[in-house]
Amino acid sequence: MAKSEIGSGTRSDLEDLLDLAAGASPVPSEALLARVLADADAALALRRATPAVVKVDGSGLFSRIAAALGGWPALAGLASATIVGIWFGYTQPAGIDGVAAGLFSSDASFDLGDLMPEYDIVLAGG
């Protein structure tokens, strides 16, 4: 080996030393290898003893319907509108009652002539 190369900034001796270190692996003891394998066995045994967990990946029927409707925000709006509709149907607010009476009351009767335009208006139009 050349003299004083480590101190002189030449790379070769330092790299030789590092190569020497790379080739000099500590040998794992049999006891260490046995402990590592025992851990592997324990991990296998634990896995066999633990029931598999079913993962929910969001690909079910309900998730697909929700996605088709525009996701959870759209579903929330739809649910709110449904609840308000049921509430209106159940409580029948006074305003809605009046409108319904006007439209569907048996007292209100219309004849075909009520829906036709006035005859003189037609004539005036030429």
Binding site: S25, P28, L33, A40, D41, L44, R47
Partner: peptide, 27 residues
Amino acid sequence: AFGNGDRVAAQVLTQRLVPRVLRYASR
């Protein structure tokens, strides 16, 4: 393979990886 329950795979991995890991940790 080990994840699927193969113990022999663990033996091969142990022999292959432990010397490298031990060398690195020792340094």
